[in-house]
Amino acid sequence: MSDVQGIDIADLNVWFGQGPERVDAVQSVSFTVDKGASVGLVGESGSGKSTILRAITGLAGSWSGSMMVGGEKLGRKRSKAFYNKVQMVFQDPYASLHPRHSVDQVLSETLSLHGLKDIDRRIIKLLDDVGLGTAFRFRYPHQLSGGQRQRVAIARALASEPSILLLDEPTSALDVSVQAEILNLLSDLRDERGLTYLMVSHNLAVVGHLCESVLVMQNGQIVELLSIEDLRAQQASHPYTQQLLKSSLGFVRDVPRQT
């Protein structure tokens, strides 16, 4: 097997409900993400891509298979050390921050939950790292723009100095100019800290910018693993991936225009 410090998922199944209500959201999925690598997960909504991230963090209840993450074999419960190593950034910065907690409260609570000392200095450092600066320390989420909120969410994820970040559509709620800032920030942080990224996105161009390879999911299964070179060259073998690639180029008319 590959580098154990990264992510190694083998034969993962995740399901919700039971009996006739049972929905198999993820079906026998296996993949690895080497330490320091960045892998994208693409697919339509309901294909199970976010569920994989949630299973890794322990947010999805019933699963089977084996998950080795950051050198640790995952069981039913996650250890405190696990959350020091693995953190997640959610899609919607408008929903993932408590509206009545200031940036300072968000970060200091996170830091103390991780049992870290020297909180004051760390908050200043974190805000600096994500390009916000201390002027934002005592602001509330409603006083921040979408991009600034996502920076706070990234700062919160970085608080425990993790080595692996799970990114669930980190820029899809943002304008393109802000998306560019956040993507630059994510690649800077990766260079500085040697982070490992597993990123869910529906935007192939975003995945192509940040990742080295892409897993394509459909109906809970991985249908294709593509390198970015193949993605750029539009070389996909699975029909679903070909469709995704085609639509990423924009709208194509069925019939010739009548003008």
């Binding site: 393109v176 560019a180 192509g208």
Partner: peptide, 18 residues
């Protein structure tokens, strides 16, 4: 705006910020 878009056909290390 156009320059800040990541593009599959024209990869760049850093995206231009508006």
């Amino acid at each position: 705006l156009l320059n800040s878009l990541p593009r599959l056909d024209a990869p760049r290390d850093r995206l231009a910020v508006l």
